[in-house]
């Protein structure tokens, strides 16, 4: 399981007129199962592009991605969709919850789409929402929740289909430090208790204390690949 996700010479090139931008420029690495990995780097260094390729949202220009020894790049669009629905969880900077659905319904929707029965999905969404600390907010609409609360609903939504890998692109960008910490603590707990692989993009250096491993990009290339030292602050206050 040392090479759960295997990335080989991954590239993404954008052509804008005559100008060529190598957003990701020959990246090779592998991720262990259960690793909490941070992708860091300055703005424009290619973090999001890399994450999108790993999450099968954007096809690479060149290179290979294998998950569990399965080549995922050659999957069809609908197979990729199924793959994302059943094996990945996504959290974005914008929570983008469905505005007409309550917190509980937003979470349930994804399980429903996978064909789960109403009893099972509503029980599990309630459970997950309680675990992210929103037990008393389940019937609220997104407009009735704070940013941090909405992001926690999005996290519950990402977890409802018991994914193997959780992708997060700057999930704390719109949150204050208290809420950011709550989200990161949650990630850490999920990562540890559920042995979930977490790949998270961040450009905040203090987030590093949560990561098992950091890949730092510069101009689309891996500039650094290291394991930060763990500090006390990173121990989870939440129970899952």
């Amino acid at each position: 399981m040392d090479e759960y996700i295997k990335v080989g010479d991954l590239r993404k090139r954008y052509t804008m007129g005559t100008l060529e931008v190598s957003a990701v420029d020959g990246v090779t690495f592998s991720v262990r199962k259960g690793e909490f990995m941070g992708i860091m780097g300055s703005s424009g260094s290619g973090k999001s592009t890399l994450l999108h390729m790993l999450g099968l949202l954007d096809p690479p220009t060149k290179g290979t991605i294998a998950i569990d020894d399965k080549d995922v790049i050659s999957l069809s669009e609908s197979e990729k969709g199924m793959f994302r629905l059943s094996r990945f969880g996504f959290i974005f900077q914008d929570y983008a919850l469905v505005p007409e659905l309550t917190a509980e319904e937003n979470v349930s929707l994804v399980a429903m789409a996978r064909g789960e029965g109403p009893e099972s999905y509503s029980r599990r969404s309630r459970q997950l929402l309680s675990q992210v600390g929103l037990g008393d907010r389940m019937a609220h609409l997104p407009s009735e929740l704070s940013g941090g609360e909405q992001q926690r609903v999005a996290i519950a939504r990402a977890l409802i289909n018991t994914p193997e890998i959780l992708f997060a692109d700057e999930p704390c960008a719109n949150l204050d430090s208290t809420n950011s910490r709550a989200v990161l603590d949650l990630f850490q707990t999920i990562n540890q208790k559920m042995n979930l692989t977490v790949i998270m993009v961040s450009h905040e250096n203090w987030h590093m204390e949560y990561f098992d491993r950091v890949i730092r990009l510069r101009d689309g290339k891996i500039h650094e690949d290291f394991r930060p030292e763990k500090t006390e602050a990173a121990t989870s206050p939440l129970r899952l």
Partner: peptide, 18 residues
Amino acid sequence: NNRKQIGILKAIGLKKSI
């Protein structure tokens, strides 16, 4: 108005037809 939300639902894996 729901563009972003539609994008994210698709990213999560909801079919377009849904």
